[in-house]
Amino acid sequence: GKMTGIVKWFNADKGFAFITPDDGSKDVFVHFSAIQNDGYKSLDEGQKVSFTIESGAKGPAAGNVTSL
């Protein structure tokens, strides 16, 4: 299901971020390909987002990341 959280930090050079979920679970890795914005895919620290949890090769990662 959809979860919500806050972007903890975003590394534009490497194209990934971490989200701190609102439910208090541990921070979730985000690859820029999961960001659903049109055009430039970036996130801002402190931004509120919704996302799903996908199981990636290196463990859980956020999918369908959308700005709220």
Rank of each mutant, 00 (worst) to 15 (best):
Y40D: 10
G59L: 13
K41C: 15
S42P: 11
P60L: 03
G46A: 02
T66R: 00
F18T: 05
G15P: 01
S67M: 08
S25Y: 03
F18C: 15
Q36M: 12
S25P: 02
F51T: 00
L43R: 01
E54A: 02
S25C: 06
Y40L: 13
D44K: 13
I19H: 00
S42V: 08
L68F: 01
N37W: 14
V28K: 04
K26S: 09
L68P: 15
I35K: 02
V49N: 00
D27I: 06
G56L: 07
T4L: 05
K58C: 15
G46M: 03
S25A: 05
V7N: 00
K8P: 01
D38V: 08
G15E: 13
F10Y: 13
M3H: 08
T52Y: 06
V30E: 00
T4R: 03
T4F: 07
D13S: 09
Q36C: 14
G39T: 07
F18M: 09
K41R: 08
N11K: 04
F51W: 13
D27H: 04
I35T: 03
I35R: 00
D22Y: 03
Q47I: 09
E54F: 01
E54S: 03
G46E: 02
D38F: 07
G5K: 00
F10G: 02
W9I: 04
G59P: 14
V28L: 11
D38R: 03
T52I: 13
S33V: 06
G59E: 15
D27N: 08
A61N: 12
E45L: 14
S50P: 01
S55I: 10
A17K: 00
F29E: 09
G15M: 12
G63H: 11
S55H: 11
Q47C: 13
A61R: 03
F18L: 11
M3G: 06
Y40T: 09
I6M: 06
V30H: 01
K2V: 13
D38H: 10
Y40E: 13
N11I: 05
I53C: 15
I6Q: 03
A12Y: 08
A17Y: 07
F10K: 12
F29Y: 13
A34Y: 14
S55R: 04
I35W: 15
D44R: 13
D22G: 03
F10H: 05
S42Y: 13
V28N: 00
D23R: 02
D44C: 15
G63W: 01
I35P: 02
V28I: 13
T52N: 07
T20F: 03
S67K: 02
K58Y: 14
F16Y: 14
I53R: 05
W9G: 03
V28M: 10
N11R: 04
Q47F: 07
L68Y: 02
L68S: 15
K26T: 06
V28H: 03
G24Q: 04
F51C: 04
S33A: 10
S50K: 06
S67V: 12
G63N: 11
